[in-house]
Each structure stands twice: as structure tokens, then as C-alpha cells.
């Protein structure tokens, strides 16, 4: 297990390095002169040149690359073109609401998704399975912003039960969390079902039944723990996706999170900000994946004793 953790940690660091390198070079591929973008079209060439120099843009790319890593290591993610303030500060403010939204959405999705999936597997070939899978199919197909808009139309504008936008009270959470949670409940329900169906066909389930165990024990003790392994992977994966993927829902509900910041920054060509946001979210992704890998160790002794 110790070797496993070290190996996974090492792999995570490598991926993180790869991501930041990729982002660094991608952002430097963006056409146009960042200094020009910052200062606007009317700035004199001299001012642009002096800014270029102070930003180190005239240095060779490799020098800039190593400087970027040095800065990142010191926690300095650069300054926003738009506000000229350290991007770290802005991100620190915006990350809270996004994390709240992501965790609330995933929490809801796990509760509903796993129970619906288990239910569908347990009642295979009955109307229960048909209904659950149909709803799940709709869930993965209705875009979350369309669902969000429909919720807004009905609950906020027609019934006036919920606020249309913003962030603050628990009522503000309802519509965005449902918009996100429905999709991921559906994904998790589908994965849970197919995983459980596969596990229920295993030889050791037949052994368990041959012992005379009740269907409930077979389901909860023998099938669920094995069946959850792919669910944990997917849930981890999508939690990470949610960290960056709330973009659309945040835009719709004017949620003051990272996703909206990312869109605003792209429209304003605020590259240091984009670079930092992607870096932060990818780090979150890598960290979550690492934790998911560790959780395998607890679920699956084959990995624990590797």
C-alpha cells in the first residue's frame, strides 16, 4: 500500500507538471501581443516595449518557462491584465462558491444516483428499472443550462418560489444544484446500474446465494462494495469536472464562481487569469484523482496488498 501511494503521488506530480507545461505553451501560442492587449490599441510603441521588457516577454521562451515554474512554486500566479491585481487573490475569492456548488451537486448526485442505480439493478427487467433508466437517459440528455432555464421559468418567474440569480441564501442554491445534480445523478445511476448488473453476474455472487444468504445481504454485502469501485472513479472524475464545468450554470445563474471568471477572462483576453484558473482546476482534478486511487485501496484488497 505504501508503495502504491508513493507511486500514485509521483504519477500525479508528473501529470501536474505536464498540464502546466501544456498550458504555458498553449497560452503562449495565443496570437497577439499581451502587452498590447493590456495597454490597449492606443498605447505608444515605446510603452508597449517597456511593458514587454518588465514582463520579461522578450526573454527566450525557455527562460520564461522556468521563471513561470519558479513563480508558481512560490505561489505567485501572476497579475491580471484586467485589474492588475494578483490573480491568486481573485481566484481565492471566486473558488469558494464554485466548490460549494460542485460539492452540493455531487453530493446530491451520489445520493440519488447510487440509490437509483442499485434499485434498477435489483429490480432488473421490471418497470422500476425501465422508469429509472428512462429518467436517467433524460438526465444525461437535457443540457444543464436548458434545465436551469426551465427551472427559472417555472419556479422563479411563474411560481416565484426561488430567486432568479445570485448567491447568498439557501434558496439561491436550489436551482443551480438541481441543474447540475440531475445530470450527474443520471450519469452515476447509469454507471451504478451497469456495474451492479455486471457484479451480480459474477461467480462469487452465485457462491453467496448458494450459501443461502438473503437477496438483501447478497446485494448490500457482496455486490455493493465491488460495484462501487467504478462509481467512485466516475464520481471523483466528475467532481473534478464540476470544479471547472460549472461554467455554464454559473453564467446562467450569475453565480460568482471560477467558471464565470474563466469566461469573463477569455472574453477580456486576460491570459494570466485563464492560465491560473486552469492550473488551479487541474490541480484539483489531479488531487481528487489521487484520492480516488487511494480509496481503491480501501475498497479492493487486491490493490491494498499489491
Amino acid at each position: 500500500m505504501k508503495h502504491f501511494i508513493i507511486r500514485r503521488a509521483f504519477a500525479s506530480v508528473i501529470v501536474l507538471w505536464g498540464v502546466s507545461t501544456l498550458i504555458f505553451f498553449t497560452v503562449h501560442m495565443i496570437p497577439g501581443d499581451p502587452a498590447r492587449v493590456m495597454l490597449g490599441v492606443r498605447a505608444t510603441p515605446e510603452r508597449v516595449e517597456s511593458l514587454r521588457e518588465s514582463m520579461g516577454l522578450d526573454d527566450p521562451l525557455l527562460t520564461q518557462y522556468f521563471r513561470f515554474f519558479g513563480n508558481v512554486a512560490r505561489g505567485d500566479l501572476g497579475r491580471s491584465f484586467r485589474t492588475n491585481r494578483p490573480v491568486g487573490h481573485e481566484i481565492a475569492v471566486r473558488i469558494g462558491p464554485t466548490v460549494q456548488l460542485a460539492f452540493a451537486g455531487m453530493g446530491l448526485a451520489l445520493i440519488i444516483g447510487v440509490s437509483a442505480g442499485v434499485l434498477a439493478a435489483a429490480f432488473r427487467d421490471t418497470w422500476i428499472e425501465t422508469v429509472v433508466m428512462m429518467v436517467a437517459m433524460i438526465g444525461i440528455s437535457v443540457p444543464n443550462f436548458v434545465l436551469g432555464m426551465l427551472l427559472m421559468l417555472y419556479f422563479s418567474l411563474h411560481l416565484r418560489w426561488l430567486p432568479t440569480m445570485g448567491h447568498g441564501t439557501w434558496q439561491h442554491f436550489v436551482a443551480p444544484v438541481i441543474s447540475l445534480g440531475f445530470l450527474y445523478s443520471a450519469i452515476i445511476a447509469r454507471i451504478t446500474r451497469s456495474s451492479m448488473v455486471e457484479i451480480l453476474g459474477m461467480d462469487y455472487i452465485r457462491s453467496a446465494r448458494a450459501k443461502g444468504l438473503s437477496e438483501r445481504v447478497v446485494m448490500t454485502k457482496h455486490a455493493l462494495k465491488n460495484g462501487l469501485i467504478p462509481v467512485v472513479t466516475i464520481a471523483g472524475l466528475y467532481l473534478a469536472v464540476l470544479l471547472g464545468g460549472t461554467v455554464v450554470v454559473e453564467t446562467l445563474f450569475s453565480w460568482p464562481g471560477l467558471g464565470r471568471l474563466a469566461v469573463e477572462s477569455i472574453l477580456a483576453r486576460d491570459y494570466p487569469m485563464i492560465q491560473a484558473i486552469i492550473l488551479v482546476i487541474s490541480s484539483g482534478f489531479v488531487l481528487i484523482n489521487f484520492l480516488v486511487d487511494l480509496s481503491y485501496g480501501f475498497l479492493d484488497p487486491r490493490i491494498r496488498y499489491d
Binding site: D203, Y204, R206, H222, K225, N226, R302
Partner: peptide, 27 residues
């Protein structure tokens, strides 16, 4: 089925062909 469960594993027991997959890997 519930009466059958009292017989399985108790009065009639069974072993299968594939020992590699017939035991639950997580217990």
C-alpha cells in the same frame, strides 16, 4: 424462495468450477 434459502448452504451445499472467481475478492 425464502424457504429454499434455509436449505441452500445448510442441507445442500455446492462448489463450482472456477475457484479463481468463486470467492468474493473484497472479503
Amino acid at each position: 424462495v425464502n424457504e429454499m434459502r434455509e436449505i441452500r448452504g445448510n442441507d445442500i451445499a455446492m462448489i463450482f468450477q472456477e475457484p479463481m472467481t468463486s470467492l468474493n475478492p473484497v472479503y
